[in-house]
């Protein structure tokens, strides 16, 4: 046996190399992704988990980390600002998220059924805020929300005093000018308005795509049976759009719980009066990079992940399966 293997060393070497090459080549070709993922995806995730169990002031260098177990988590559980940021995030997520869909679905329906000729330019216009830099948008909105010279207050002021609109808006006159970004009760609505405006167009595009997959036959059949436009919306469009609604809402949940740029710019990076506009993502950033408590910041990121995960699972449990099942 031994002699046969050694007698043809070159052949077997080639075959072996060939075999090896075939076995390894796919992994080599796919490796760039895995290498990049390991460096920029996996490592930070694992490291942040490790970091969340440490106390670390970054300016003292990597060597000064101190293991403190779950203390960052227990500390956060008793931290009033952390809970405030959770409430803020949920408030803004719902107040900006639900209207996004309530507006986007009928609008997409109207675009696809009624005003066919303007469909594309209008869809593009609605989509424009989504592809514009969040920072640029927030800066513009900051000017719009200005107390003394902001366009919004100027408009309200005009509406409250002009003879033709005073009957409707006159009641506002006493509370003007509204301090949109300075008063705690106004900050969250102001942020929500911006987020709603920025993202409803994205949902319009999603729903328009969803609507395009619904066969026209259904509508024709319904029309022959004497269904009104309203009836076909509620009995044909909505049920068939469910998978797309599920998808779009999942997107909204994940996106809205991670809001950072918009509240950060609108509140000048402070979170606003009484932290009324401080989202969890903002609190995380400030804890880590302004107050230099990296371990606590890492713990916040894992708690945020937990929150997003839980809400997504709940959403999936209640709407996901049924939504996907009913797809004919």
């Amino acid at each position: 046996m031994a002699r046969t293997t050694t007698s043809t060393p070159q052949l077997s070497w080639n075959i072996r190399l060939n075999k090896l090459q075939r076995r390894v080549a796919p992994y080599v070709f796919i490796s760039p992704f895995f290498i990049l993922f390991a460096v920029f995806g996996l490592f930070p995730i694992v490291f942040s988990m490790y970091l969340s169990l440490q106390e670390w002031n970054p300016i003292q260098g990597l060597g000064t980390m101190r293991y403190i177990g779950l203390e960052n988590y227990t500390w956060l559980m008793g931290d009033p600002w952390f809970w405030r940021s959770i409430t803020n995030t949920l408030w803004i997520a719902f107040a900006s998220g639900i209207p996004q869909h309530l507006v986007a679905i009928p609008l997409a329906f109207a675009l696809s059924r009624g005003i066919q000729s303007f469909r594309h330019p209008l869809t593009a216009a609605y989509f424009l805020p989504y592809i514009t830099s969040a920072v640029a948008i927030a800066l513009v909105f900051q000017t719009i929300f200005g107390t003394q010279f902001g366009v919004l207050n100027q408009t309200l002021q005009y509406l409250a005093t002009a003879p033709w609109s005073a009957w409707l808006f006159g009641g506002l006159a006493d509370s003007l000018p509204v301090n949109w970004l300075g008063r705690a009760p106004n900050i969250k609505p102001a942020i929500s308005l911006l987020v709603w405006w920025q993202f409803f167009g994205f949902n319009v595009v999603l729903y328009a795509a969803g609507l395009a997959t619904i066969p026209k036959d259904y509508y024709e059949a319904a029309q022959i049976d004497g269904a009104s436009g309203r009836q076909s919306f509620f009995h044909i469009t909505l049920p068939l759009l469910r998978p797309m609604i599920f998808f779009a809402v999942t997107f909204t949940i994940i996106g809205n719980l991670q809001l950072f740029d918009q509240p950060f710019i609108l509140t000048d990076g402070t979170g606003g009066t009484g932290q009324a506009g401080m989202t969890v993502a903002m609190y995380l950033y400030r804890t880590g990079f302004e107050w230099l408590e990296m371990g606590t910041a890492a713990a916040i990121s894992w708690l945020l992940f937990l929150l997003i995960g839980t809400l997504t699972v709940i959403h999936f449990f209640f709407f996901g399966r049924s939504g996907l099942e009913r797809r004919d």
């Binding site: 301090n179 932290q275 400030r286």
Partner: peptide, 17 residues
């Protein structure tokens, strides 16, 4: 840094709220 932030926040609540 953190004390300045917390004081600023308290002042915001005193003045605005």
């Amino acid at each position: 840094m953190i004390a300045e932030e917390i004081f600023g926040s308290a002042m915001g609540e005193i003045l605005n709220e």
